[in-house]
Design a protein around this nucleic acid. Structure first.
Lengths: 198, 198
DNA sequence: GTCTATATCTCGATAGAC
DNA sequence: GTCTATCGAGATATAGAC
């Protein structure tokens, strides 16, 4: 996985292809991005791409798979803190907001291009998505059984939470009025003070 | 605009094209849908499409424009009720949830294919989107100035609300545990009890 | 590991008959 | 208003030299 937005030239070619594909597929979608586009963005010939990725489909899967792995690893760390369900949830939300903002393009692709995956690969991504969701569900149900959260419908709450957070990169402007941390806080309040029993 | 999911054959051809395009673009996206796909779904030749729509782009714009007009008309009715800001907001949320669930495919396209529009047409849709958002913003700010809602960041709250509701059709199953009305209610609670001053 | 060249296919759109 | 036929461009992917 390419970690930094470095000046690019000295990265391995496969990473530069990966990065270019992320940018282009974020802007134009999977079907709106051609392998020619990717190649010319990297500065190589189209046929050279196929030395690093066997197909356009494999390139998409690589992006989505990597992103899910990173996302899950991130969430595990966030939930590993000591604290109440409320504190854990805030930690998880903040981690999710930050990861989505910092990896805006990859996450958008991962959220929106599921339908562009072949059935077999789609299954793998959906499974990881379920794993991720289960991490949040566990905390919410924990808080409910401890009486700290009201008995809202957990599935609705989870879906609402994920959609709220995943939309952040679509409208968040780093140069704007709010910092990313305040956004995470606003969303946590919005979510929790509807969930927490007063 | 095609209003009913009729047995299709006796609808005007332009409506049948419209409907077929909605289904296909919902499933595969704008770039993933070819005019050949649309034509064969309707049962006519591809060249016949161009008698009804001058281009694929015009077909997409027609869908998004129609959907925004319907959405706004719907919201105006919902907000026209007598009542407190809280009641108006619940009415607006319920209307939005219902409209999105009933027009799932059109709304998904309208939400996700903005980037596939040419600049000029995109401007028109964005303007209508802003109009729609302003309807909700007015009620929230009204409630804030009346002291019924706390001073949450209105833009964050709006973005969170729209993303929550727009995601409903993606996971809602009519055959499932919850009715659409209970989903609208869950979401209203989730949103309002984080917004309302206790 | 990158190149040139190309095979094969599908795309959006048009011409013109009926 | 729908048809047959086709244009020209651009798509994914491969072959084979270096």
């Amino acid at each position: 996985m390419p970690k930094t937005t470095d000046t690019k030239k000295h990265l391995p070619t496969s990473d530069r292809i990966y990065d270019a594909a992320v940018s282009l597929m974020f802007e134009r979608g999977y079907h709106g991005t051609s392998m020619r586009d990717v190649a010319s963005s990297v500065g190589i010939q189209m046929s050279s791409l196929y030395h690093h990725f066997p197909s356009k489909q494999a390139l998409l899967f690589s992006i989505m798979n990597q992103t899910m792995d990173d996302l899950i690893a991130n969430a595990r760390v966030a939930f590993a803190i000591e604290g109440s369900p409320r504190e854990k949830l805030i930690s998880g939300i903040t981690s999710h907001v930050n990861f989505h903002a910092q990896n805006n393009m990859e996450n958008f692709i991962t959220d929106s291009e599921l339908r562009s995956l072949e059935p077999e690969e789609r299954k793998l991504i959906v499974a990881k998505r379920d794993n991720y969701s289960a991490l949040f569900r566990a905390v919410i149900e924990d808080g409910q059984s401890q009486g700290q959260f009201r008995q809202a419908d957990t599935s609705v709450a989870l879906a609402a939470l994920f959609s709220m957070i995943s939309s952040v990169p679509a409208w968040f402007k780093p140069s704007g009025r709010l910092s990313l941390d305040s956004v995470a806080q606003e969303i946590s309040f919005l979510f929790l003070d509807g969930l927490t029993r007063n």
